[in-house]
């Protein structure tokens, strides 16, 4: 079995976002790029599954759609333990475009299970995974917080309102994963970092796809009013404000 893990390159979550080019793009100066947190967890889980040899996983490959500059992020994934990587040499124009590129590679390279994080912390679209599955015409399960393999099938835990379900599906399939899939993201050890340098990164040129959406302008969230402080000895005053001023209780 071959697993593909989709990874996206996002600004470190503590980054103060600034805009450039008349608010049409993000000012990338000084941004620390990291693997999207959900993708990092999904890579960790894929590697855990591979470590258990009874699962018969031959390889864990990471795929990233992005320019050469994002190779640092790919090397991080290889250092964490992925066997090899694919980079589609293109700016990820929108989710539809990105998913189409990933699906194309899956068709060529024949992966059995594709892992996608449920969301990226930059665009917050929550769409690439499901789109990849639909492009491929294979089943997808979303909001997955657990995955194992049993009798040749993927057994997934799916989060639902107020609980969870167990869902089984045969490969090929796409698992769209969220928090809970792995406890802590796996961290690259020195040996992994050394080995990552010589692991193969295949570069594919993109296929022609028209994106369906485009950001035309970014803006900062509206600032909140200054905080009104209430004396810790008299929290009753807070209740009064919430009742009479905010009118929320």
């Amino acid at each position: 079995m071959k697993i593909l893990v989709c990874i996206s390159n996002v600004p470190d979550t503590t980054t103060k976002i600034k805009f450039a080019a008349g608010n049409t793009s993000i000012d990338t100066a000084g941004i620390q790029w990291v693997i999207n947190p959900w993708d990092e967890l999904s890579l960790t889980r894929a590697l855990e599954l591979k470590d258990d040899t009874s699962n018969g996983i031959k390889s864990v490959t990471v795929i990233h759609v992005g320019p050469a500059a994002s190779e640092t992020t790919i090397r991080k994934a290889l250092a964490i333990g992925a066997d090899d990587a694919v980079r589609v040499n293109a700016e990820p124009l929108d989710a539809y475009y990105t998913a189409a590129q990933i699906a194309e590679v899956v068709k060529k390279e024949q992966f059995d299970v594709v892992f996608c994080g449920i969301e990226s912390s930059d665009f917050n679209g929550s769409t690439v995974g499901g789109m990849v599955a639909e492009f491929l015409g294979v089943p997808s399960v979303s909001a997955v917080s657990g995955i194992k393999f049993e009798n040749g099938q993927a057994v997934l835990t799916r989060e639902i309102d107020g609980g969870k379900e167990t869902v089984t599906v045969s490969a090929p399939c796409v698992a769209i994963v969220q928090k809970g899939i792995a406890k802590e993201p796996r961290i690259a050890a020195m040996r992994g970092i050394m080995m990552a340098r010589s692991k193969p990164v295949k570069v594919f040129e993109p296929v022609a796809v028209e994106p369906l959406t485009q950001v035309v302008e970014f803006e900062k969230p509206a600032p909140r009013a200054a905080c009104k402080y209430i004396d810790a000895e008299n929290p009753r005053q807070l209740i009064e404000l919430l009742q009479n001023e905010a009118k929320v209780i």
Binding site: G125, T127, G130, E134, A143, I176, T213
Partner: peptide, 17 residues
């Protein structure tokens, strides 16, 4: 989140999420 992206590809419809 499970349905919208699949529908998007099926209908070639852009998603504002």
């Amino acid at each position: 989140k499970a349905i919208a992206p699949r529908l998007s590809v099926r209908l070639k419809a852009g998603v504002g999420s």
